[in-house]
């Protein structure tokens, strides 16, 4: 079998046994996003420590292809216990590195959906806190 594809052991492992899969009761926030054009949907549940600005706990559910699900699974492992500044510092390149550094252009959207979803919230939080700091001075 040719191994010139992205469904390598790491991806398949996260697809078959997604980490942090499921819901959190009483989350501090829930984030949902979808690539409607291909039918990928992902939903994150986040416990957030406002004082420390840290993601205390995170889980997800998805209705999606393997690339999107594995990407979300790897992402939750990466960001759990981390400050949101870390989440916001993650880039497309970091996600592609989950999959050995390259991904077919047609599948990039699938891989990037989870990070885009999560950052839509974490970036807003960071901006708000900057604004509040400015207000203090």
């Amino acid at each position: 079998m040719s191994s010139d594809h992205i469904y390598l052991d790491n991806l398949l492992d996260h697809y078959r046994n997604p980490r942090n899969y499921g819901e959190i009761k009483n989350p501090d926030f829930v984030i949902e996003d979808a690539n409607l054009s291909c039918g990928d949907e992902v939903k994150f549940f986040v416990k957030f420590d406002k004082n420390k600005n840290v993601i205390e706990d995170i889980k997800f559910v998805s209705r999606s292809c393997a690339v999107c699900k594995a990407s979300a699974s790897i992402l939750t492992e990466l960001v759990k216990g981390k400050p949101i500044s870390f989440v916001n510092s993650l880039t497309k390149k970091d996600v592609l590195n989950f999959f050995g550094g390259r991904i077919d252009p047609s599948r990039e959207k699938c891989a990037l959906l989870p990070l885009r979803a999560l950052q839509s919230k974490t970036k807003a939080i960071e901006e708000d806190s900057h604004k509040n700091q400015k207000d203090l001075f």
């Binding site: 079998m1 594809h5 469904y7 291909c38 999606s64 292809c65 690339v67 047609s106």
Partner: peptide, 14 residues
């Protein structure tokens, strides 16, 4: 139980 994109992608690659 398998997304169509996964099937199409792998049919092509394999």
């Amino acid at each position: 139980g398998i997304h169509a994109h996964d099937v199409a992608y792998l049919l092509d690659k394999l």
